[in-house]
Amino acid sequence: MIRASKAAFISSAVAAFLAAAAGDAQDAPGSGPTSVAVSDEGRKIYEQICQACHLADAKGGGGAGAVIPALAGNRNLEDPKFMIEVLMKGRGGMPWFNDILTPSQMAAVINYVRTHFNQFKGTVGEADVAAFAAAAGKPDRAECVTCE
């Protein structure tokens, strides 16, 4: 069942990727599918993906007026649904991640950030993320054929 939901999620993401081909045509490397795999482990996902902006200590950064928010000690993250929503839909300058992370990977990194950089109780599972995706109805997130 878990496998089925993951497969369905990925295939619908691929369908969206193909369907949303028409409009934009950004500059892109053109390298084709990458062999670089994002980890399944929360800490490693944080290091590969999240610390790009939120930095290694999760304290965020940037100067006045151009701030990257801290994840460490961030009360918004007490509600895991908030994190699911941000990962699925993006927020401000931060893009959605449903074309980079699977529901299982999202759950893993949410749990890592909530417990390692914060002391929040409870964890989320792949099913919680998948349920949000199902409720949202569509991962219509990919944007163009040249953005490989």
Partner: peptide
Amino acid sequence: AFANEANGLILAG
């Protein structure tokens, strides 16, 4: 390098 998406994030980190 000209990396985007996950690869761009990996390098940025």
